[in-house]
Design a protein around this nucleic acid. Structure first.
Length: 575
DNA sequence: GCCGTTTTCGGCCCGACTGTTTTCAGTCG
């Protein structure tokens, strides 16, 4: 049994309670207890409903009498009386204010209790009218900062897609590396962990001249504004509205600082408590003896994990989703790397809505060192993307034959991204499907369906013997379209039964399957393909985001079809 | 609110920066 959507639902309610209690002004440790419990449920390997049924909730560390009772109520009724009551005291709308930078629970509480404001528009108006400055702890600057924060939030909705953050982060690193006083330098934070969206970019530098680094850092030409500047920490806002935080430490602390600032927060909390149990104290400056405060290690990240009796944990795994236990038991996966990839199965040509000729795609694939590439265009009914008629499919196959003859060093496959129609039938009949070397299927129309309908629609596709993989399985577009509500367990079971692979679509606004479901699917022994969904040459470089998503889902080389040499691949595609 | 062969009560991870203060609370990561 794997985690269901129910676990997520329970976790969301517990997080909501924590936020509301924060605003209410309850003690920190109580709200933290709710967050810990929520995180436990969220990352559980087991279905919460089963645990409740078998009366085992309280065996989960961090969940005691009170929270156990609440979880039981949520599982059994889908609701929670306590939450409803809490919301009568503290309006749920106030939670939206937490996203405004510089605004936390205490400020929200004052804004609500003293001014009775619950809506963003009201808050904006009050700032403009200078009504906040009279509250204790508020000033004119606070009003201006809140207004600026709201504006930023409206513009960016908070988080940037991974590729935007990745490109910006790396050009900043290139700029900083040129400076004399930079000793060691790295990306840290969620960007180093390659999360699907990034709140802000963290950069870590070791240097003996922190002030000089900060001056140089704030002279970067792409900066819009300096947000704060200190000796160890400086933050700036880039012209495209991304925030970048720089930390400067001494070289002896570089490893511990990198560990600390890479996070995640949950991973670090666990790491620090393990340190305490072993008689150490861990912070960004190093690992110290708890009693004598003597510095032990901190120069390299690896040394810290080693000293704590752990194997080094790749940044992508540091989410407190079991990696710490696995590390202690020496059971961490050897994560797949970009260089393991031998080809791309999801590339569009100008036969459909791609902008490149097949021969140019092939040249680029050769440059990337690929052994094969599948040109997978849309199918006939997807007129909006110039889906291929049977006639055009035949023409494409002939052209690929020709190009294959000229390029013995790479194998070009004729693929398709065949549409799954609303009733679950495929957009090509078998007599056309069998002509393709590889068949991906995907949904591109009629997104509004019930969970059952959508699940059956996909499962029906798996039963076709020519189908190899499911493209962008949940069809989400990050920040723009919610994922399909699917019974993922059923989908994975059927995929396993029919030897159908799950695609990890590398396009930055898709990253679909996501890391969460990848890990679950892997436990169900599902195979994967990583595709870029490229529509132009440069998109083929999105492979790194597919890889990082796979790594976050604990995948190894052997889990991914397009890491195999061509001869093995051919065999694995047979159903 | 949770937890305990150092405790059933008194702890719970911790440091930097800002803005509002005049010694510190709030926020952030």
């Amino acid at each position: 049994m794997v985690t269901s959507m129910k676990n997520k639902h329970v976790a969301e309610i517990l997080y909501e309670i924590a936020d509301l209690l924060d605003i209410k002004g309850d003690i920190f440790f109580k709200t933290r207890a709710y967050r810990i419990a929520a995180q436990k449920i969220e990352t559980l390997d087991e279905d919460i409903e089963i645990i409740v049924e078998e009366k085992r909730i309280k065996t989960i560390p961090g969940i005691g009498e009170a929270i156990a009772k609440k979880i039981k109520e949520i599982v059994q009724t889908g609701k929670l009386e306590y939450l409803e009551k809490l919301k009568k005291e503290i309006p749920g709308e106030l939670l939206n204010f937490l996203d405004i930078p510089g605004v936390g629970p205490k400020k929200i509480s004052a804004i609500y209790k003293k001014l009775n404001i619950t809506k963003i528009d009201e808050l904006k108006k009050a700032c403009k009218q200078g009504k906040l400055r009279d509250l204790e702890g508020f000033g004119e600057l606070t009003e201006r900062n809140i207004l600026r924060g709201i504006k930023l939030k409206e513009k960016t909705s908070g988080r940037a897609l991974l590729n935007l953050a990745y490109d910006n982060g790396n050009s900043y690193i290139n700029y900083l590396e040129k400076f004399d006083h930079v000793n060691r330098i790295s990306i840290a934070g969620s960007l180093r962990r390659m999360k699907e969206t990034i709140g802000d970019i963290d950069i870590l530098v070791s240097s003996d001249k922190p002030e000089k680094i900060m001056d140089y850092f704030t002279k970067y030409p792409k900066i819009q504004r300096v947000l704060l500047k200190g000796k160890t920490k400086t933050s700036v806002l880039l012209k495209d509205n991304l925030q970048v935080d720089l930390r400067v430490v001494k070289d002896e602390s570089y490893g511990s600082a990198l560990q600390y600032f890479t996070g995640s927060k949950e991973h670090n909390v666990k790491m620090r408590s393990i340190s305490l149990k072993k008689g150490y104290k861990l912070n960004e400056y190093g690992l110290f003896n708890k009693k004598t405060e003597k510095y032990i290690v901190g120069k390299k990240e690896e040394d810290i994990y080693k000293k704590l009796g752990m194997k080094f944990i790749d940044p992508e795994l540091r989410e407190n989703r079991g990696e710490i236990q696995a590390s202690i038991k020496n059971k961490l996966p050897t994560l797949v790397k970009l260089k393991d990839i031998k080809g791309d199965f999801h590339v569009h040509s100008n036969y459909s809505d791609g902008s490149e000729k097949i021969k140019d795609l092939v040249e680029y694939a050769k440059k990337l060192g690929y052994l094969y590439i599948a040109i997978s265009d849309h199918s006939q009914s997807l007129k909006i993307a110039q889906g291929l008629s049977e006639e055009k499919v035949n023409k494409k196959i002939k052209e690929i034959e020709k190009i294959n003859k000229k390029n013995p060093e790479i194998k070009i496959l004729c693929g398709t991204e065949c549409d799954i129609k609303a009733d679950g039938t495929l957009d090509y009949p078998d007599k056309i499907l069998k002509k393709f070397d590889i068949v991906g299927i995907g949904i591109h129309t009629k997104f509004k369906m019930t969970q059952k309908e959508a699940t059956n629609r996909i499962i029906k596709g798996f039963e076709n013997k020519y189908v190899n993989f499911l493209a962008h399985p949940t069809c989400r577009l990050i920040g723009r379209r919610e994922p399909f509500e699917l019974d993922m367990e059923k989908i994975f079971d059927k995929a396993r039964e029919t030897n159908t692979y799950m695609e990890i679509n590398s396009f930055p606004d898709r990253l679909d399957l996501n890391d969460f479901y990848i890990k679950i699917a892997k436990e169900k022994k599902i195979g994967f393909v990583i595709g870029t969904d490229a529509h132009m040459l440069d998109h083929m470089n999105f492979m790194k985001y597919g890889i990082s998503t796979a790594r976050r889902g604990w995948l190894e080389k052997k889990d991914i079809l397009n890491t195999y040499p061509y001869d093995k691949l051919e065999k694995k595609l047979e159903k």
